[in-house]
Design a protein around this nucleic acid. Structure first.
Lengths: 139, 139
DNA sequence: GTGGTCTGGTTACTATTGGAAACCAGTTTG
DNA sequence: CAAACTGGTTTCCAATAGTAACCAGACCAC
């Protein structure tokens, strides 16, 4: 059941049948998966080209095997990447973006770039906020 | 302490000092917040213009007061949005994107648009995957 | 003046998830 | 036989997410 709510005050007017604001909309399912820093990092990393499990693990410092495994499985289920097992010895498993995954990643890259570029401003904002909060608590 | 690791096989060559792949990089902090479907939805919603607490709550079906409150606070701390309390009666609290938040949201919108546009393909992929998994389990 | 509604939250409590570390299985190397 | 590579799964605990209830101030109806 797809929702078709189109808010009257939506200046974008771009909805085409799916509405992420509705909790019954399947687009939320994607968002649930994207709402995951690891997924964003993995997609972005695979934009560099296909990559094997342990290579990804080493690339993305801080991710655990379990989580990497889980997220890769999710992304594969979503059709965003493919998992290719090559029966070499030891077995090698290569992950690569599908065309759909590549399209999505095109939208993800600017986001990560922005995050990298704007870190100083954000850290400054956090600092200012914390100072203000501390002052409010003190006074 | 900012990491400067620039993988040799990075075909983008776009890093400018921050590296989201490193767990010691502050850019991860942003990603931690973006890695949150609610944050993405809220930012996208505020792109439509300033909005009050309960308006957002009604817009984004499924979000609870607690989570909305938490995420708004986080985004405010990051300097992505402002919280303006107007001492009317009852008190009204308006949330609006900062310039920085608006910039980020520009990058978020294509993502949500893509999610909406590509739902059929993703649902199809999920279905195919599940069928394949079930068959593998049966056989 | 008592109850209900609006505003915008906070506070329990619980279910789900996230993450660190251990373990598994196959093969090669020492 | 042990170690290390491959790519995971399992176990356990802590953190988080979500549900529902409660709070506080001011308005309105009665």
């Amino acid at each position: 059941m797809v929702t078709n709510r189109k808010p009257a005050d939506n200046p974008f007017g771009e909805e085409q049948g799916f509405d992420v604001y509705s909790d019954s909309c399947p687009a939320r399912l994607v968002l649930d998966h994207l709402g995951d820093k690891w997924a964003l990092l993995i997609l972005h990393r695979l934009a560099f080209g296909p990559r094997r499990f342990n290579a990804l693990r080493r690339d993305i410092s801080g991710i655990s095997q379990k989580v990497l495994s889980q997220v890769l499985k999710r992304l594969e289920r979503d059709g965003l990447l493919t998992r290719t097992v090559t029966p070499t010895v030891p077995v090698t498993v290569e992950y690569a973006l599908t065309q759909m995954g590549a399209q999505l990643t095109e939208r993800v890259c600017p986001l990560l770039r922005w995050a990298e570029d704007n870190m100083p401003a954000i850290l400054g904002a956090q600092d200012a906020y914390d100072v203000k909060q501390a002052a409010a608590g003190t006074g």
